[in-house]
Design a binder for these strands. Structure first.
Lengths: 122, 122
DNA sequence: CCGCATCCTGCACGATACTG
DNA sequence: CAGTATCGTGCAGGATGCGG
């Protein structure tokens, strides 16, 4: 008989959610929001220069829909909107940090592996 | 003055690597290899029914190139190949497990967030 | 200031057929 | 058994322009 399995096997639900959370830009957005606490739309744009406004909108909407980010209308005329990390998003951020840390630590090793592979493959 | 920053800010290198490691199928492949230790090509196909053989080949090559997976030719005629997790891949697996665990734990919460969002948005 | 609508392009992935 | 080759396609994401 087996106890609580520490390794849940991946399912479609996992993939779907992770796809929405680890997509090209959500990482950057979460990263920035976590670092600065709360940011306006155009502050985010400036903080992530490479992002287009369409992609930023999409990422924010997706994150908001999944409950990771809160969208707060501060005022209108001129309209001002603030985005901040929702509580559940904090936990995710820890995981993302772990991924970033791991990546940073192992990048050199990965580089060497690539060189070895490419040398053989040509 | 600030000490060693525990939150490395995301860079292009991070994204590039994570893109290759967290793509649609690599997660499944790593998952299976970690669970069974070593698997043959067609064993992997059967273990991940939804994957096409082209995608499996691509995922394996990418993981191999990045040093996450080792490809071992066991015999030829008939040719037999074994794939197994490389040491550095183990650490990654721990992170992926954490992601899966987190996802599992928070899926209900995310579901509710989505329903709330969709109710408002229509 | 904060977006949405539209058009366009590349690329990931699937389907299918073939080979050592 | 373990792949390669080729073709077709959906969709994420860039560029650009407009609107409350």
């Amino acid at each position: 008989m087996q106890e609580t399995d520490p390794r849940p096997t991946i399912t479609g639900q996992h993939r779907e959610l992770l796809d929405q959370l680890l997509d090209k830009w959500s990482l950057h957005v979460l990263d920035q929001l976590c670092e600065h606490g709360a940011l306006r739309f155009n502050e985010l744009r400036r903080a992530i220069p490479a992002i287009t406004q369409k992609s930023l909108t999409a990422a924010l909407r997706r994150l908001e829909r999944n409950g990771m980010v809160e969208r707060i209308v501060v005022s209108d005329r001129p309209i001002a909107v603030e985005y901040r990390i929702a509580p559940v998003g904090q936990g995710l951020q820890d995981l993302i940090d772990a991924l970033l840390l791991w990546t940073t630590a192992h990048l050199p090793e990965v580089e060497r592996a690539r060189e070895r592979f490419d040398a053989v493959a040509g």
